[in-house]
Design a protein around this nucleic acid. Structure first.
Length: 949
RNA sequence: GCCGACUUAGCUCAGUGGUAGAGCAUCCGCUUCACACGCGGGAGGUCAGAAGUUCAAAUCUUCUAGUCGGCACCA
């Protein structure tokens, strides 16, 4: 078979994904077993405006690893893909497109046309990320792809909104909100970020008191808001101002008079002790205003320019221009006391980085108190969802819930789910799932729908169940919910009947999902809201577990960002190192840990991919007559140590890999597989059996046609040898094949490419749930590992052989013995250990590059020998004429010193009476044994040393 | 201000009570018939610092320092 010398990822990446998809491998329907347990994951829907970044690649890799393993283990597996309509982002793209191409504003074309343009934009550019996911190898079921604005998901949104409204969880009201003047919409607290500015100013303004020559000085960082002041507040106990309470102030730059009020919000010790109150532009002032029934004077437009309420001199000015002008005017009037430098933190719009303006505005809100309790109860009573890693995520989650405030759910955008509320001519509100329903309620069709849309996260919050077809419509849903609760009580008799329905009904089959894999940053925005709304509307948990991934930082250790230019494009990595290498690297990051991007690490896994390629290449180059055959791993009593050892290692690895993945320790699974494949399989097993499986033996050299003619010429011995060789070849192929299966979830392309090349692979190797499917490694049975096949004795015997070879290699290297020189190896050991070495003589001679192996009870070698000890044997390599005595002395001293340090440490423990008394006896014995072992070795080394001096 | 995480070899990182590890880099040797994206062999660490708990601490507790997050406040 022709096989290239190095792995070329591009070839494998080009073909297999299409084949898997075409053969329906990603859909749960591929599973032929009606009783199969389900395993489901919904993807955190990426924004349609997005393109794949390294965080997606990380999360998708983990989800794919989980999904692929479970699928291989015969679960009815669904990983559901989809995208989020990303309200503000798409709106901004379309606004930009409109401006650039037609020099128009959204108002110019109207809402309807704007929305149709947005859909067009989505159709045209919205599939970038889903295309990129194909490249990643993500085994998602594209037939179930969802979009948050699909009709069925939109129905769900309306149903939920109406229900929550009717139950009093959603209300409309005037509140101070975070207003983004750039996007001209309200945004939630979670979308506001803080930015500290050192160049802030604190401006002290003097307000003249009416009927008095007194002035009150107030300090502010936003002087322009004084135009909207409707009071000055002081603390009632403040002696300085006590007698001014109830008096009136002439508010400069306006012709308004405002009261001086007392409120406990004011801290007499802070600043001047007097606070200007602007109820329409500050949340605290708003509260004060409500308490004192103050006028709420809005002085800004939605683009943060001043409006008519600010006075003719200021109307139309930008807020920052107005600020300067207010200061100027106060200075002119002699009312500017001073300006101090002041470090200030500004609220910034997370997306557009503009400064947020707190603004009084009428919005829709979602009350969170009861929903918070739903979520908190789940955590308290069931520990659900379970976070991985648990620390610190669970605590962060619950702390946040405990301090939750109401959620502003309306947005002043056109792209999104328009709020299903209608107003009649009198301003009465009718909340309904459709215009028809609203008209019916209102008794008129003269209705106007609320212009706002819902926060994108509102529809995302339903993602765990709306994606499975839940729309909330009709009584059916409720009935099903009721049925489902009782199903579990009825028991197993109903199973078969239910199974039929299960395959038809995604909601019942796949909810709750098994795990959510997502980033820390959206635990609040998304995870918590899914928990609340899924529980509220389906009575189910959205997911059992939450895996919280860390942040992949740039090479400079800072979060990746366009402005820093430290981003890493996953697609570039795919091109440079291959998809598989990138995936394993991402999976090798400790769960939840932040990591600095590091090219050398990913190269490690590129090299690993190549190693796997070449190991397979080796097996294939020596595969004549052999085949993948699980029976070849059933070893009899005559089996070699190497075979027993590798089978044991394989099964131990499989057990540990499964255990690691069960607790989402992807990095541990990667490490186990890397070590098994490279160290155990390549470095030792291949080398140990190389002679046995390479080279044409006599009969194999014959072409099949001549074989019959020459059959009688082949003697029995040769026949046995051939048979043994073919068995050995099958065995190594089978071990390899098992390893490829375990590697598949991490490295799907490489493993499929190689697996298909192995002799005798077929769908017979599939898990029994996929016997009829076309042969692919992705449906092969993922090894669980068998404790009965773990052979500790073989492992320790093999270790003895490895130790011996390593020591001789060490001597060779330290003594500068040429590769072509083949010394003898003398070993002194007990009879049992001698047997082990004797059984592996050929391998020892080959791997240590030695000429002969002399086994005895005691060493009888010339003085000019290099020596070493291992736990149960003494080794000597006679080096007549080659030995450098000084070097040998140094080498032995080095070994003695190492042992001595260790011995002293252990003796320290043993001489501690408390240790002997309180430590577990096994532990004490273990230490004693080790000291004894060290002493024997040291004694031998010292004798050798003395002999040299 | 409150809460939390992190600090381990030159670099990037594993390691949750019992012999400090990996990859890369480095040093020495090797065209050994799968692989130089390789093979073999070395060197390199007071586990940030201090105190404590324990027979035993990188690991548990407290404090200190530095780094980074989250939340709150900000007249």
């Amino acid at each position: 078979m022709e096989i290239a010398k190095a792995y070329n990822p591009k070839e494998a990446e080009a073909t297999h994904y299409q084949t898997w998809e075409a053969n329906g491998c990603f859909a749960p329907e591929i599973n032929e077993n009606p009783l199969a347990e389900k395993y489901s994951i919904v993807i955190p829907p990426p924004n349609v405006t997005g393109s794949l970044h390294i965080g997606h690649a990380l999360q998708h890799t983990l989800m794919d690893v989980l999904t692929r393993r479970k699928r291989m283990q015969g679960f009815r597996t669904l990983w559901l893909p989809g995208t989020d309509h990303a309200g503000i982002s798409v709106q901004r793209k379309v606004v930009e497109q409109l401006r650039r191409d037609e020099n128009k504003l959204p108002q110019d074309i109207g809402r309807e046309e704007f929305i149709s343009r947005a859909w067009k934009w989505k159709e045209e550019f919205g599939s970038t990320i889903t295309e990129q996911m194909r490249r990643e190898g993500a085994s998602v079921d594209w037939s179930r792809e969802r979009f948050t604005m699909d009709e069925s998901l939109s129905k769900a949104v309306r149903f939920v909104f109406v229900t929550l409204y009717n139950e009093g969880w959603i209300y409309r009201g005037k509140r101070i909100v975070n207003w983004c003047p750039k996007d001209k919409t309200v945004i939630s607290d979670l979308e506001v970020k803080e930015e500290t500015r050192k160049d802030g100013k604190l401006v002290y303004l003097r307000y003249p008191v009416k009927d008095s020559d007194k002035q009150i000085t107030v300090a502010t960082t936003r002087p322009e808001t004084m135009l909207g002041d409707t009071a000055v507040a002081v603390n009632a106990d403040d002696e300085r101002y006590k007698n001014l309470i109830g008096k009136t102030i002439f508010l400069p730059l306006t012709n308004r008079e405002i009261p001086i009020i007392a409120d406990e919000y004011v801290d007499a010790a802070f600043g001047t002790g007097a606070v200007k109150i602007t109820p329409a532009h500050d949340p605290n002032d708003y509260e004060v205003g409500v308490r004192h029934n103050l006028e709420q004077l809005v002085i800004m437009n939605d683009d943060a320019t001043m409006n008519a309420n600010a006075g003719t001199e200021f109307e139309g000015l930008d807020r920052f221009k107005a600020r300067e002008k207010v200061i100027e005017k106060f200075a002119e009037l002699g009312l500017l006391e001073k300006i101090e430098d002041y470090e200030i933190s500004l609220p910034i719009c997370e997306r557009c980085k503009n400064i947020i303006e707190p603004l009084l505005s009428e919005q829709w809100f979602c009350r969170m108190d009861e929903m918070r309790d739903l979520a908190l109860d789940l955590m308290k009573t069931e520990g659900a969802p379970h976070f991985y890693p648990n620390v610190p995520n669970e605590k962060v989650y619950t702390n946040w819930l405990e301090n939750l405030k109401d959620w502003t759910i309306s947005r002043q955008l056109w792209w999104g789910h328009q709020i299903p509320a209608w107003y009649d001519a009198d301003g009465q509100t009718f909340v309904a799932r459709s215009f028809e329903e609203a008209s019916e309620k209102a008794g008129t069709t003269e209705l106007t729908q609320d212009a706002d849309v819902l926060d994108t996260w509102f529809s995302s919050a339903l993602w765990a169940f709306s994606t499975f077809g839940w729309t909330g419509e009709g009584e059916e849903e409720k009935r099903r919910r009721g049925e489902r609760k009782s199903d579990s009580q009825i028991g197993n008799e109903q199973l078969t009947k239910d199974e039929e329905q299960r395959t038809k009904n995604d909601l019942e089959t796949f909810l709750p999902t098994d795990v959510l894999v997502t980033g820390r940053d959206i635990i609040f925005l998304w995870v918590s809201r899914m928990v609340m709304l899924t529980e509220k509307f389906t009575g189910e948990k959205p997911f059992a577990d939450v895996v919280v991934t860390g942040t992949v930082l740039g090479k400079d250790g800072k979060p990746m960002s366009k402005s820093r230019g430290n981003g890493v494009d996953p697609l570039e990595m795919f091109d440079k190192f291959g998809v598989d290498a990138t995936r394993v690297y991402l999976a090798s990051i400790a769960t939840g840990a932040d990591i600095k991007w590091n090219d050398s690490q990913i190269e490690t896994f590129r090299n690993f991919a190549n190693k796997i390629w070449n190991a397979t290449r080796f097996c294939l180059l020596n595969s004549d007559g052999a085949k993948v055959d699980l029976a070849s791993l059933k070893l009899d009593e005559n089996a070699s140590i190497a075979d027993r050892w590798i089978v044991s290692r394989l099964n131990k690895t499989a057990l540990q890999v499964n255990k690691s993945l069960d607790r989402y320790f992807f990095h541990e699974a990667v490490r186990l597989l890397y070590q098994f494949f490279w160290n155990d399989f390549c470095d030792w097993y291949i080398e140990l059996v190389k002679d046995e499986i390479t080279g044409d033996s006599l009969s194999l050299a014959h072409s099949p046609s001549s074989e019959n003619n020459d059959a009688e010429n082949i003697n029995e011995g040769q026949r046995t040898k051939d048979k043994g060789q073919i068995q050995a070849r099958s065995r190594i192929l089978t071990i390899l094949e098992q390893a490829l299966r375990m590697l598949h979830p991490f490295m799907p392309y490489l493993t499929e490419e190689l697996w298909q090349k192995l002799p005798n692979v077929s769908s017979d190797l599939h898990h029994e749930a996929y016997r009829d499917a076309k042969q692919t490694i992705m449906l092969a049975d993922f090894p669980l590992g068998d404790t009965d096949l773990i052979d500790e004795r073989a492992e320790s015997e093999m270790q003895t052989v490895i130790d011996l070879i390593s020591k001789v290699r060490n001597i060779r290297a330290e003594m500068n013995i040429k590769p072509s020189d083949k010394p003898a190896i003398h070993v002194a050991a007990n009879a049992e250990t001698q047997k082990i070495f004797a059984a592996n003589e050929a391998q020892i001679l080959k791997l240590a590059r030695a000429e002969k192996l002399v086994l005895a009870e005691t060493l009888g070698v010339p003085k000019a020998s290099a020596k070493a000890v291992i736990s149960n044997a003494e080794i000597a390599v006679p080096l007549e004429g080659l030995i450098d005595f000084e070097k040998e002395i140094a080498r032995l001293e080095n070994q003695v010193n190492k042992l001595e340090t260790e011995r002293q440490r252990l003796n320290g423990q043993l001489s501690n009476a408390n240790f002997i008394e309180r430590a577990p006896p096994e532990k004490v014995d273990e230490i004693r044994e080790r000291v004894a072992g060290i002493e024997t070795q040291t004694k031998t080394l010292k004798q050798n040393l003395e002999a040299l001096i």
